[in-house]
Design a protein around this nucleic acid. Structure first.
Lengths: 236, 236
DNA sequence: ATGAAGTATTGGTACGAACCATATTACGAA
DNA sequence: TTCGTAATATGGTTCGTACCAATACTTCAT
């Protein structure tokens, strides 16, 4: 019960218990769970809502709560490349191609809500999975937010570094397009020029809705796909 | 207050009021809203949670609730091509390429949880936006769920037709990949063979987590991108 | 002015209670 | 058996209350 709230702990507890169960297996009723774990039904419902949002269970009024059929994939959450690769059971690595400080310019400045001449850190990295080139990633960060970042080893997880600086994107807006690779990109990704690729452009926002990161990822189409879940109505 | 629940009505009401406001404008406090609308604070919080999930507001403990900066895009929800195009202010249309009933087979059967020889309706349509080819869409539906569908006009919204049959996908699992078009596909989409395209494979699930639809959409890369929002943690 | 400490405000968590809406089950009439 | 109806179970909504945690503001000493 250490982490924080009860519903959080209960959610994690239920997750573990649900893990081995078959799809469509009914859980105990909310009222039963409330008694068993000595919490109010409201707390149980909060925990279950989290599991529902994560695509782990589904609920039918009048019938009960059941284990979701997640043979396909988990609901997409905001993850870093490193997390993503580890989830795919691959060994992530990265090589820094370019790292430096430049003026934001109009495009990046506009997206990060900076002036055109405000400094940003520009970071181009080639991301590898099991030593195979996977993705070419260009990140822009407001320089004032990441003092000293350029002096550190940038081949590990950028998100973890940002976390230690107190920078935590909780939400992101993404735009996905299909493109063909340019010559230099193809060379770095070790694919023929003109090979298809998935371009994911992301603006990461913190808990106050402030942009903290703008990243463009160019994934090799033959080695990467994007899986995620969507809902008809936002979950309440 | 007609539609249903109070929080739903309140959410819609607040949506309208927020519409013209600038980003980061603070809303009234939860306690104030509760008094003003004569509801409990719990109801206000449920309504706000919905707006937060929809990417309309963000909340900061100790500070308040604020209008989100949604210059980029709205959070992705499960939409049909027709809805999507209308939201982009385009006039959607479609031409039926193939429509018929076939045995499910192992792949489609597996994904729709049917036997290999259960009948499915197969529907290939070329989707147009403002009379320009946009997307080639292949849908599979369990035949038992959609009796008489093949006798109807299939050039309008399929989702709306399904709705009248009581079939309502509330959730979907999607896989997005970048591909290059084959010759026949390229011909239909009126692009050079080998042109890049975005392939979106979707399995639509109803409120009981039963697959009701399996659609593969092939979008012209030069005319379509996929925008959506993601969160670090599922919203509770 | 500047910074530190304390106070008030605001959203977050949790409890308990009652009732509503939908699904399922049990039952009884045809 | 079959079908419709009633009873029951289950999640959904709403209320009220109290307290916690993070933030913003005020005050005061330096």
């Amino acid at each position: 019960m250490f982490p924080g709230s009860k519903h959080e702990w209960l959610g994690a507890e239920l997750r573990k218990q649900i893990e081995p169960l078959d799809a469509h297996t009914p859980l105990s009723t909310e009222r039963e769970l409330a008694v068993r774990y000595q919490v109010s039904r409201a707390t149980v419902r909060t925990a279950l809502r989290g599991l529902e949002a994560a695509g782990i269970v589904y609920r039918v009024q009048g019938a009960g709560t059941f284990v979701s059929d997640s043979t396909v994939s988990k609901t997409l959450t905001l993850t870093s490349f490193s997390e993503d690769m580890r989830r795919r059971a691959s060994r992530p690595d990265s090589r820094v191609v370019v790292a430096g400080e430049v003026p934001a310019g109009s495009v990046i400045g506009g997206e990060l809500r900076l002036s055109v001449d405000d400094p940003v850190v520009r970071l181009v990295r080639l991301r590898l999975a099991d030593d195979e080139p996977m993705c070419l990633e260009t990140s822009y960060l407001p320089a004032v937010l990441v003092p000293g970042l350029l002096g550190e080893d940038l081949s590990s997880s950028l998100y973890e570094k940002l976390d230690t600086l107190g920078i935590r994107p909780v939400r992101a807006e993404q735009v996905v397009t299909a493109v063909t690779t340019e010559d230099t990109e193809a060379g770095l990704l070790v694919v023929p020029p003109g090979a298809p690729a998935l371009r994911v452009q992301r603006i990461g926002l913190d808990h106050r809705d402030q942009p903290v990161e703008r990243t463009t990822s160019l994934y090799r189409a033959d080695r990467y796909d994007l899986k995620f879940g969507v809902r008809r109505e936002p979950l309440i």
